[in-house]
């Protein structure tokens, strides 16, 4: 910018898009070889606009093909690539290099609290099991009129709008310190998805779901540490949703 030459003005614009070397330290685990997970570092050439997922791709494609991680859509919707980046649960495909401090290495590891299978992959089954337990589907015995849909006012739809955004990436549940130590706890994501139906005016099984969550391992285990709200890549107010479920249980009505 300071150089008034025509020649320099073009590189000046490109200046911000210059690539630099970023060090990633990844927690590797190969169940066939390793007894314990180990940290391995990789240097990659990155642009500020690149994402952690691009760095992982570069490592897997150009440096070490054995690096294992999940990703599907790579655009923050499928929820496959939740991982712990510099100690915080993030989607690798939504974390930009420029938002991280690249003067230090970037630590990448699998999400915690679920059984580690390989490198950045964990067994998601316990997570989905508690998701299934809250019956995350519309339960309605009444029929809408012939040729009609189940109508709902804008206000009624707004009531649970926030919790419809969940992509089941497990970033919230695996950031919850209660979930880390208590494998029986439903976890934030299951409660969020219960919330989505509990407060849906078209659903008729709110009391069933409230009953399921009014359990020793239900909402009462939540200690409002707000880790889940901080971790959610969709910006869902997870802790607020859990608090609303607690309130509904205490009051006995939605």
């Amino acid at each position: 910018m300071s150089t008034p030459t025509v020649e320099a003005s073009v590189p000046a614009a490109a200046e911000e898009h210059r690539s630099f070397t970023v060090t990633l330290i990844i927690r590797r685990f190969d169940p066939e070889v390793d007894d314990e997970p180990r940290w391995q570092d990789f240097d990659v050439q990155m642009y500020p606009t690149d994402r952690i997922l691009d760095a992982l791709h570069q490592i897997k494609w150009d440096q070490d093909g054995s690096l294992t991680f999940r990703r599907s859509c790579a655009h923050g919707i499928c929820g496959s690539d939740a991982m712990r980046i510099n100690g915080r649960n993030r989607l690798a495909c939504k974390t930009l290099i420029k938002d991280l401090d690249i003067s230090k290495p970037i630590y990448v590891e699998a999400i915690k609290g679920l059984p580690l299978e390989k490198d950045l992959i964990v067994d998601m089954e316990p997570f989905f099991a508690s998701y299934r337990d809250v019956q995350p589907f519309l339960i309605a015995n009444s029929q809408p009129g012939a040729g009609k849909e189940r109508v709902q006012t804008i206000a009624d739809r707004e009531r649970f709008d926030d919790t419809t955004k969940c992509i089941l990436c497990a970033a919230c549940t695996s950031s919850c310190p209660v979930f880390w130590t208590d494998g029986q706890y439903f976890g934030p994501a299951a409660i969020v998805n219960a919330h989505r139906f509990i407060f849906d005016s078209r659903d008729e099984a709110s009391s069933v779901r409230l009953d399921i969550l009014n359990d020793k391992e239900g909402v009462w285990r939540c200690r409002t540490t707000f880790n889940c709200s901080e971790a959610c890549p969709r910006g869902i107010q997870v802790t607020k949703a859990i608090a609303e479920v607690k309130q509904a249980i205490v009051r006995g009505k939605v």
């Binding site: 009953d211 009014n214 020793k216």
Partner: peptide, 11 residues
């Protein structure tokens, strides 16, 4: 749905 009997101490 197994309804627990007695007081819900956690609540």
């Amino acid at each position: 749905v197994t309804r627990r009997r007695g007081v819900n101490w956690e609540k």
